[in-house]
Every structure is written in C-alpha cells, then in structure tokens.
Deep mutational scan, measured.
Amino acid sequence: AQASVVANQLIPINTYLTLVMMRSEVVTPVGIPAEDIPRLVSMQVNRAVPLGTTLMPDMVKGYA
C-alpha cells in the first residue's frame, strides 16, 4: 500500500511546511504520496491541518 503524508502536529493556516510537521503513514483515503515530502518542504498550507490529518493536494498552495 502507498504511504501518504500525515500531519505530525497541528499545522496552522498559512504555515510553511517543515520535515518535523509531516510523517508518512498508510491511510485511507490516500493523500499526497509520502515520496513528495521533500517537495512539500517550504510550501504553505491554505487551511489549519489538525494532528493526524492526511494532507490532500488541495490543502497545499502550489502543490496540485
């Protein structure tokens, strides 16, 4: 199964992502692939992302 990117903490709206904020986990539904974690660093979330939430492409500015 493919691992997705999951929030490792509460990520406030407009926060620039860093490695410590994200982890990879096999979840349903599938979100942003874990292999894209390096690409996500320094990208901004466009909403608050609670701890344990799967990151979806529409949550990250400029990802989709």
Rank of each mutant, 00 (worst) to 15 (best):
A1K: 03
A1G: 15
Q2A: 13
A3S: 15
S4K: 01
V5L: 04
V5K: 01
V5Q: 01
V6K: 05
V6T: 11
A7R: 01
A7P: 02
A7N: 01
N8S: 12
N8Q: 08
Q9G: 06
Q9A: 15
Q9P: 00
L10N: 12
L10P: 14
L10Q: 15
L10D: 15
I11L: 08
P12Y: 05
P12N: 08
I13Q: 13
I13D: 09
N14H: 14
T15Y: 13
T15S: 13
Y16S: 10
L17W: 01
T18K: 03
T18Q: 12
L19V: 14
L19Q: 08
L19F: 12
M21T: 03
M21K: 08
M21I: 03
M21F: 10
M22T: 02
M22K: 00
M22P: 00
M22R: 00
R23S: 05
R23C: 03
S24Y: 05
E25P: 02
V26H: 07
V26G: 05
V26W: 05
V27C: 03
V27H: 05
V27L: 12
T28G: 06
T28E: 14
P29C: 14
P29M: 08
P29Y: 04
P29H: 06
V30D: 15
I32F: 03
P33L: 10
P33A: 09
A34C: 04
E35Y: 06
E35R: 04
E35F: 06
D36I: 08
D36R: 06
I37N: 01
I37E: 03
P38W: 08
R39A: 07
R39N: 12
R39T: 09
L40Q: 01
M43T: 07
M43I: 04
Q44S: 09
V45T: 13
V45L: 08
V45P: 03
N46G: 12
N46I: 14
R47I: 08
R47M: 14
A48L: 11
V49K: 00
P50Q: 08
P50K: 11
L51G: 11
L51V: 08
G52S: 11
G52D: 15
T53S: 13
T53K: 08
T53I: 14
T53Y: 15
T54V: 10
L55I: 13
L55M: 10
M56Q: 07
P57K: 06
P57Y: 06
P57F: 07
P57H: 10
D58Y: 11
D58T: 14
D58C: 05
M59T: 07
M59L: 05
M59C: 03
V60P: 01
V60N: 01
K61I: 14
Y63N: 05
Y63V: 04
A64H: 11
A64K: 06
